[in-house]
Design a binder for these strands. Sequence first.
DNA 1: GGCCAGGCCTGAT
DNA 2: ATCAGGCATGGC
Length: 276
Amino acid sequence: MDKLEFSKEYFNIYDTLSCGQTFRYNPFKDGYLVVSNNVACYIVYENENTVIYTEHTDYFKNYFDLNTDYSLIVDKSKSYNIEYLTKASEYGKGIRILKQNTYEMIISFIISQNNNITRIKTIIKKLCEKLGDKLEFMGETYYSFPTIDKLALYDEGFFKSLGFGYRAGYIESTAKKLLDTDINSLYKLDTKTLKSELIKFKGIGGKVADCVLLFGFNRFDSFPVDTWIYKLYRENFCGEECNREKITEYFLNMFKEYSGYIQQYLFYYKRENKEA
DNA sequence: GGCCAGGCCTGAT
DNA sequence: ATCAGGCATGGC
């Protein structure tokens, strides 16, 4: 078992896990058990540090983006001198953008549409318990995220029985199409082209594509516009546009290659502070 | 009990 | 190209 330590100022456990980028974590002992794809870690505060216990050190070093200096990102974020953004980035400065499994992000964010985070977690949990492998870490049982090959064996009716609602058909279609997709060729595409490819999958529109770009492909020149960002744009940025793609363009033009990070600060702040 | 949630698809202009 | 209307389900 390896132990990774990191100062907690720019690595807040709760903020990082609950800001809506991952749905696979649960309270465990004094911290959280975090699962990604088919591996797990235990994350907990010890004194002034955030500590990760894992048998997959390289995976979680990358997963938690431990080689990036987030103080620079927060400083950049504040340098725009936009009051709301400055408050948001100070509030969320402990968030780290997780580098997650691409397939898991595609399936998870299709499920996420027009849905709330609590229920997204429930659906994904059921999916993993049903189709994932039963594994163990620190005496605790957890389940891997199902492989695409496994997902492609099931149909719409099956996913509906797990509570997917109208998204069930999207999952069947997309899982089967992913089987015939060379994922490595997608990594080579520039962000705009990649987005246009992602949108070809059933159940992936502009917003889900942006989330997959950000969390599953680590493209920071992406800016997901969901209902919270839509509200923020109009209430806190005096925006007039109604078209979400145009709102994405508006923020991309403003924040460029920092868009992904900044979107997350804004999203989390808006969602946590409903009156702000 | 009604509104809303990390929206997308389809069919009509 | 744009836009309404419909959509499953459960959290709050």
